[in-house]
Amino acid sequence: MIIAVFPGQGSQTPGFLAPWLESEVARERLQAFSDKAQVDLVAAGTSWDADRIRDTKIAQPLIVAASLLSYAALIERAGTRPQGVAGHSVGELAALAAAEVISSDEALRLVGIRGRAMADAAAVAQTGMSAIVGGDEQDVLSALEKHSLTPANFNGGGQIVAAGALGDLAELAASPPRGTRIIPLKVAGAFHTGYMASAVDTLRTAAATVETSDPTVTLWSNHDGSTLTHGRAAIDRMVAQIASPVRWDLCMASFAENGVTGIIELAPAGTLIGLAKRALRGVPSVAVKTPDDLEAAANLLTGDAA
């Protein structure tokens, strides 16, 4: 089984969409996505600087739009679809669209609302996130509890992301658990924690009337690594996930249990493939960063189908 995975916030870089927009079809599609998300995604993906695209309300629709543009290009090149999909954090909205639970346009409308609501929630208090690499997991979790921090992402491959007040994150960095490295993340708040409760309420209201279908390919939930078969349940999980930890480690364990034989990460790619190389050794993977990567991704996809 070859699957497609969709990255989360923090994977964007200035100008990364420029190569994709050499296609007039892709440019027109991105302009349509801009209308749905209420963000100028063409400018954001080509000319805005790192600080500007780090803004949560910009970053989230930008990432989902890029993932769906590159996913459509992959399908066109390969002539077939991956057999399963999963998304990390905001990437779950791209996965829902890829699994045909919701339309791409609806995904961009919802991610625009999600980004604005999470930015508003993050503005209430000075919070952030830091990746903790290495160390003993129980030691890490004990240190987070000691510093009143939440394990917001269990990324697998020996990485946990802590979230909470900036002062508490600074204290953690000053006295890290043994054998760990602390990396502050360039995000604007403590995502996937109780700080995001108001954003959950906003997105739940927006998603309540969305028309859904059941997934047409295997769809994993990053809430617990389970596979979802009902569209409405998938939407409900996506909404609640804003204030609950991302369990990408459990997703990767489920990939192994379900016979995944290849992974394609869509733009802006690289982060999830890096995690997979550490946790799923030997599984072929391709990161689709630019259109030049589509051939390798299509070859991996069609080779499995054959």
Rank of each mutant, 00 (worst) to 15 (best):
residue 176 P to C: 04
residue 8 G to K: 02
residue 289 K to H: 03
residue 263 I to D: 06
residue 84 G to D: 06
residue 25 V to P: 00
residue 71 Y to T: 01
residue 63 I to L: 12
residue 92 E to Q: 14
residue 80 T to Q: 09
residue 104 S to W: 11
residue 213 S to I: 03
residue 35 D to G: 14
residue 153 N to D: 05
residue 282 G to R: 11
residue 69 L to H: 01
residue 229 T to M: 06
residue 206 A to L: 03
residue 245 P to V: 01
residue 65 A to P: 07
residue 111 V to N: 08
residue 222 N to V: 04
residue 118 M to D: 05
residue 8 G to H: 00
residue 184 P to Y: 04
residue 268 P to M: 09
residue 210 V to S: 08
residue 273 I to S: 13
residue 294 L to G: 01
residue 259 G to P: 11
residue 211 E to P: 00
residue 259 G to T: 13
residue 212 T to M: 02
residue 203 L to C: 03
residue 194 G to A: 14
residue 218 T to Y: 00
residue 43 A to Q: 12
residue 224 D to C: 06
residue 131 A to Y: 13
residue 246 V to D: 02
residue 131 A to R: 08
residue 205 T to A: 15
residue 306 A to D: 14
residue 96 L to P: 09
residue 133 V to C: 09
residue 105 D to W: 04
residue 131 A to G: 10
residue 64 V to L: 08
residue 72 A to K: 06
residue 43 A to P: 06
residue 235 I to G: 05
residue 183 I to F: 01
residue 195 Y to K: 08
residue 17 L to W: 00
residue 289 K to C: 02
residue 38 Q to F: 06
residue 57 K to G: 14
residue 122 A to E: 08
residue 121 A to I: 13
residue 224 D to M: 02
residue 137 E to C: 10
residue 20 W to K: 01
residue 237 R to C: 07
residue 301 L to E: 01
residue 86 A to V: 07
residue 33 F to S: 00
residue 43 A to T: 12
residue 151 P to Q: 11
residue 23 S to Q: 01
residue 104 S to E: 15
residue 63 I to F: 04
residue 271 T to I: 13
residue 209 T to M: 07
residue 185 L to Y: 04
residue 37 A to Q: 03
residue 296 A to L: 12
residue 69 L to W: 00
residue 182 I to P: 03
residue 5 V to E: 00
residue 23 S to N: 03
residue 106 E to K: 14
residue 301 L to Y: 06
residue 38 Q to V: 11
residue 20 W to S: 00
residue 285 S to M: 09
residue 58 I to L: 11
residue 62 L to Y: 10
residue 179 G to S: 03
residue 217 V to R: 02
residue 34 S to N: 10
residue 197 A to E: 15
residue 177 P to A: 02
residue 273 I to C: 08
residue 63 I to S: 07
residue 105 D to N: 13
residue 273 I to V: 15
residue 162 A to M: 07
residue 144 L to S: 07
residue 211 E to K: 09
